[in-house]
Design a protein around this nucleic acid. Structure first.
Lengths: 336, 336
DNA sequence: CGCTTCGATCAAAGCGCTTCGATTTTCGAC
DNA sequence: GTCGAAAATCGAAGCGCTTTGATCGAAGCG
């Protein structure tokens, strides 16, 4: 069986030099239209695809992008980051790049857990999704590997995140439009910047329309942002007298926990208590009642991050915009 | 800043030729121990890591392994294949290989959805996890790209799967040990070979000990293997009179659905009805009551598949064993 | 003591591509 | 027609590594 065709096979078949074939394959340089067609036709006929190794060697780029994710985020059952990854993969495909997924444990030991591409220089840049140990980010910076964060923020590194503020505001507006004036907030995971933004925008918007949220109705639990934490801390809002008539939760997991707690207490949703979340996870639409929430376009998050990174790689890395927002969208279901 | 060190920097620093450095870095050829040490020390001191592109070009291997997964399997909330992937990644790391994850939609259109590495020759081999469209497998075969299936079977291609038979037998033995003689089976997804193996081993074992399962108590739903299907079809077993005292479900999702249905009917688990599943998903231990099930070591599945593939690549591909089993383990919890 | 053997090392020839500078062609303006 | 500039094409020099065949000593042998 004939071995895989090379650039010179194509050159020969289309009667041009390999330089010209290279120019055509990369869409560079001035090439006569007729020549271009001829080369492309020959390449197609021969089933030619440039060798990534050779290309990488000659052009001193790898064409690979690293995608780093905390291991527990990757294997958690809510496929949030999985979808961010899919978005990145999709965008990478459009740009002819490959994505190398690498998970890092938490806590992270830089000596033992460093992703291989860090030492092996096998990527041109890295997308970091979600919170990771700062040591890793410092390592990236120290080796001057360009990176973009998705759904996280660190120092003044370029970041892509959901538009948490407008999402928080949208929930407040919705509550007000439904006639609520006495509303609360349930949050968790104080370390992550996103919940804080959601909270501040929400509280700010309520205050603006003359219904400030009293401190007692703002609960930020000290645990992870999950359903159990939500259920556990719900009491701090539900067992109070007076009780808020609507609660905004920093994310859907907490909101689902709050629904559990409300159901245990025999509260009718949304009549006794309106509940809104954030993220629009798969389970939100299946909840009883279906959860009103702010949708984050997870794939778009990944797409955008990878796109910015790729753009930055072909130009001045310093020019990656420091902060990019992906729009959010209020999805009104039965819970509020 | 000095650019990245190359093999000749190491050669110079350790006063040998680059050939020798190459031999050392690859652990090949006869090299004096003193020389080896000297080279390794120099490499370490300079922070040298071989360029993958150069290596790939010269050795005409890429050092990449493709990992193919159906998109819906990847983004489903139960992280089964995610963990298979992690296992593969882990093994790849040990062997100095990279894994390129590629999802394919279902249905699969070979013209539009073919993973890029298929045409770009950017992998040395492929691990296919779970069921995928046969067209893809045919494409792989046609291009003579070696591949290993994980948790699936097709034609006579090399396969790694959980030891479904001994798992099914273990459940039967456990039921019998608990004194059950009138037992049932609930399955779904008739296309996948694994459930069938579990069922056959289970039914066979029950028959052997003199308690054959009547046809009426063997239900195989025509839908996907998920919780809803389980709950929906549970009635076929639970509303029968007489009713079995124990039911083995082809996987945990179905078992959880069966638990839902049992709880709706007010049946006490395990006193009125004992239930066992298969897989040991994350939710199994959290179910009410915690689910007795057969554990599949998902990471081992991926590790094994990648390992076999890698071995095959360095030798005769034809010699990959056609069928490899990963042990399963009965985990007894409260439901049976 | 000369000759073979074998272990250790090396020089050089690529692998398939990009890219730079050089060369050839084309074409409008005169 | 002729000339110069711009457009199109090309040759050749690497990119950093692997691998083959050759070289070179030192040890073993009769």
């Amino acid at each position: 069986m004939a071995s895989r065709p090379t650039i010179s096979d194509v050159a020969e078949a289309s009667r041009v030099s390999i330089s010209t074939v290279s120019l055509v394959m990369n869409g560079k340089g001035p090439v006569a239209d007729a020549t271009r067609q001829r080369v492309l036709a020959a390449a197609d006929r021969l089933g030619y695809a440039p060798s990534r190794s050779a290309r990488g060697l000659a052009a001193r780029r790898t064409g690979n992008i690293g995608f780093v994710l905390r291991e527990d985020h990757f294997r958690q059952s809510e496929p949030f980051y999985t979808r961010v990854f899919l978005g990145a993969e999709f965008e990478a495909r459009r740009r002819g790049l490959y994505v190398l997924l690498s998970t890092v444990p938490d806590p992270y030991d830089p000596a033992r857990h460093a992703p291989r591409f860090l030492t092996e220089h096998s990527v041109d840049g890295v997308v970091v999704a979600g919170g990771v140990d700062a040591t890793l980010l410092e390592q990236l910076r120290a080796r001057s590997i360009p990176f973009v964060l998705a759904d996280y923020a660190w120092d003044d590194s370029p970041t892509v995140s959901a538009d948490n503020r407008s999402g928080g505001r949208a929930v407040a507006d919705h509550f007000v439009a439904q006639g609520h004036t006495r509303v609360g907030y349930l949050g968790a995971d104080p370390e992550h910047p996103s919940p804080a933004e959601r909270r501040d925008a929400y509280l700010g918007a309520m205050a603006e329309v003359g219904h400030p949220v009293p401190d007692g109705w703002v609960v930020t639990a000290d645990g992870p942002s999950d359903r159990q934490t939500g259920a556990l801390n719900a009491g701090l809002l539900l067992d109070r007298a007076p009780r808020p008539t609507a609660v905004f939760c920093a994310n859907d997991a907490l909101a689902l926990g709050l629904l559990d707690a409300a159901s245990e207490r025999g509260l009718a949703i949304p009549d006794d208590l309106a509940v809104a979340g954030f993220d629009d996870v798969d389970g939100a639409a299946l909840a009883k009642p279906p959860l009103t929430t702010v949708r984050i376009h997870k794939e778009t998050l990944g797409e955008t991050a990878l796109g910015l990174l790729a753009e930055g790689l072909t130009g001045a890395v310093e020019e990656i915009p420091p902060r990019t927002l992906v729009p959010t969208e209020l999805v009104v279901r039965a819970s509020a």
